[in-house]
C-alpha cells in the first residue's frame, strides 16, 4: 500500500521549482521514515538533496520501500496546477505516479515513471569552517543587487559580515549583511550567479537558510522546515582562480 497525503502541496511545488531547473530526472525514494531524493546535474556542478519526514504528511502509508523515477519537467508541469489550499495525494498505479489535487475541484494527473539514464553519487560530507544563517529573501535580494553588474559573485564571510562582491565591466557591487553568528575564521569562494538563482527558486520552502562556506569550497545552502520535518539542501561547486 502506497499513499501519501499532504495538506500543503507548496512544499513539493517550491522544491521542484528548484530541482527541475537543475536536473532532468530524479529518483524519489520512499520508506517508512519518509521521502528523500538526491540528484546532481549533468555537469556535476550542483547537487540537490530533499528530505521530507513521515510526520510532515497527513497520511503516510508506505508498507515497503519504493523508488519512483520521474522526469522533473513533467512533474513540475503537474505541480504548477496545484493551488495553495489544495490537498495533494500521491499514489502509484502500474508504471505511473498518480498525483491528485483536491480543493474546490479534484484534479488527477498520471505521471509516467521512467528509467534513469545515470546514477546519482552519494552526498559528499564536507567539513566546513564557517556556517551562518540568513533569511532567504535577504540572500535573494542581495544576489539581485550583484546580478546587475556581473554573472559571478564572491562570497566572503568574516567574523561580522557576509559580503557579496562582484566586479563588472562597467560597475562594481558589494552587499554587506551583519550575520550575528560566532565565526572564528574567514571564508571566501566565488560562484556563478546563474547556479545560485536556480537554488533560490525554492525560496518558499522555508525561511531559515544556512550557508556553509570555506575557501574555494562548494557552497552549501540548506533550507530547513520547522521541527526538522524536512530539509532541502544544495551543494554548488565554486569557480576557482587559475
Amino acid at each position: 500500500m502506497f499513499k501519501l497525503i499532504l495538506s500543503d502541496p507548496s512544499i513539493f511545488k517550491t522544491s521542484f521549482e528548484a530541482i527541475s531547473s537543475i536536473v532532468d530526472e530524479v529518483q524519489i525514494e520512499v520508506d517508512s521514515d519518509g521521502l528523500r531524493l538526491n540528484a546532481i546535474d549533468r555537469s556535476h556542478i550542483t547537487y540537490v538533496h530533499l528530505e521530507l519526514k513521515e510526520r510532515l504528511f497527513d497520511v503516510f502509508q508506505c508498507d515497503e520501500p519504493i523508488k519512483l523515477n520521474v522526469d522533473t519537467e513533467e512533474l513540475m508541469k503537474v505541480l504548477k496546477r496545484s493551488k495553495s489550499d489544495d490537498v495533494m495525494e500521491l499514489t502509484v498505479d502500474g508504471g505511473s505516479l498518480i498525483v491528485t489535487f483536491e480543493g474546490a475541484i479534484k484534479k488527477t494527473f498520471k505521471v509516467k515513471l521512467i528509467d534513469l539514464e545515470y546514477e546519482t553519487p552519494e552526498s559528499p560530507s564536507i567539513e566546513y569552517p564557517v556556517k551562518i544563517t540568513i533569511p532567504i529573501k535577504t540572500l535573494k535580494e542581495s544576489i539581485q543587487d550583484i546580478e546587475i553588474v556581473a554573472d559571478r559573485v564572491e562570497f566572503n564571510i568574516d567574523q561580522d559580515f557576509l559580503k557579496l562582491k562582484a566586479v563588472g565591466e562597467f560597475s562594481d557591487a558589494e552587499v554587506e549583511y551583519l550575520h550575528g553568528e560566532k565565526v572564528t575564521e574567514d571564508a571566501r569562494a566565488i560562484f556563478a550567479i546563474e547556479n545560485i538563482k536556480e537554488m533560490l527558486k525554492a525560496e518558499k520552502f522555508a525561511d531559515t537558510t544556512y550557508i556553509s562556506l570555506g575557501d574555494d569550497m562548494p557552497l552549501t545552502l540548506t533550507l530547513e522546515l520547522l521541527n526538522e520535518e524536512g530539509e532541502l539542501s544544495f551543494l554548488l561547486a565554486p569557480r576557482i582562480e587559475e
Binding site: 546532481i40 555537469s43 556535476h44 556542478i45 550542483t46 547537487y47 553519487p121 552519494e122 559528499p124 564536507i126 559571478r152 566565488i190 556563478a192 569550497m217 562548494p218 551543494l235 561547486a237 565554486p238 569557480r239 576557482i240 582562480e241 587559475e242
Partner: peptide, 11 residues
C-alpha cells in the same frame, strides 16, 4: 581568470 570546477573533486 577563473574556471568553473565540478563537484567531483570534493566527493
Amino acid at each position: 581568470n577563473e574556471k568553473q570546477v565540478s563537484l567531483d573533486s570534493f566527493f
